Computed example of a mutant assay.
Amino acid sequence: MKRTFGNWKMLAAAFLLLFGGLAVAQTEITFETSRLTLHTATGDHEIVVELAETEQQRQRGLMYRTELAPDHGMIFDLGQPRTASMWMANTLIPLDMVFIRTDGSVAGYYEQAEPGSKRVIASREPVKYVLELAGGQAQAYGLKPGDTVTGPALKQ
Score class of each variant (00 low, 15 high):
1 M>I: 15
2 K>W: 14
4 T>S: 02
6 G>R: 10
9 K>S: 12
9 K>D: 07
9 K>E: 02
11 L>F: 12
11 L>Y: 13
13 A>K: 07
14 A>F: 09
17 L>E: 15
19 F>R: 07
20 G>R: 13
20 G>K: 15
23 A>F: 11
24 V>A: 08
24 V>D: 11
27 T>K: 05
29 I>S: 04
30 T>N: 08
30 T>I: 01
30 T>W: 01
31 F>H: 06
31 F>Y: 09
32 E>G: 06
33 T>P: 13
34 S>W: 03
34 S>I: 07
35 R>V: 11
35 R>E: 06
36 L>I: 11
36 L>G: 04
36 L>H: 05
38 L>V: 12
39 H>E: 14
39 H>G: 01
39 H>W: 10
40 T>H: 05
40 T>G: 04
44 D>P: 01
44 D>K: 15
45 H>I: 07
47 I>E: 08
48 V>Q: 11
49 V>Q: 00
51 L>C: 08
51 L>V: 10
53 E>P: 09
55 E>F: 06
55 E>A: 09
56 Q>I: 14
58 R>W: 00
58 R>L: 00
61 G>C: 10
61 G>F: 08
62 L>A: 04
62 L>Q: 08
62 L>I: 04
64 Y>T: 12
65 R>P: 08
66 T>H: 12
67 E>W: 06
67 E>N: 02
69 A>W: 03
70 P>G: 03
71 D>E: 13
71 D>N: 11
71 D>C: 05
72 H>M: 03
73 G>P: 08
73 G>A: 10
75 I>W: 02
75 I>F: 07
82 R>V: 13
82 R>N: 13
82 R>D: 08
84 A>F: 10
84 A>H: 11
85 S>L: 06
86 M>R: 15
86 M>E: 09
86 M>I: 08
87 W>Y: 11
89 A>P: 14
91 T>D: 04
91 T>W: 15
94 P>L: 14
96 D>I: 09
96 D>C: 09
96 D>F: 15
96 D>G: 13
97 M>I: 13
103 D>M: 01
103 D>R: 02
104 G>N: 13
105 S>Y: 00
109 Y>A: 07
109 Y>K: 06
109 Y>P: 08
110 Y>A: 05
112 Q>P: 06
113 A>K: 05
114 E>R: 13
115 P>R: 03
115 P>M: 03
116 G>C: 14
116 G>R: 14
120 V>W: 04
121 I>W: 03
121 I>T: 15
121 I>N: 14
123 S>L: 11
123 S>I: 14
124 R>G: 15
124 R>Q: 03
124 R>H: 13
125 E>N: 00
126 P>Y: 08
126 P>M: 14
127 V>W: 00
127 V>G: 01
129 Y>H: 05
129 Y>T: 00
131 L>Y: 07
132 E>H: 15
132 E>P: 07
133 L>Y: 00
133 L>M: 08
134 A>E: 01
134 A>V: 09
136 G>L: 11
137 Q>D: 03
138 A>P: 01
139 Q>M: 03
141 Y>E: 02
141 Y>I: 01
142 G>H: 08
142 G>P: 02
144 K>A: 12
144 K>V: 05
145 P>F: 05
146 G>A: 12
146 G>S: 07
148 T>C: 00
150 T>H: 09
151 G>L: 10
152 P>H: 00
153 A>V: 08
154 L>R: 10
155 K>W: 02
155 K>C: 00
156 Q>I: 02
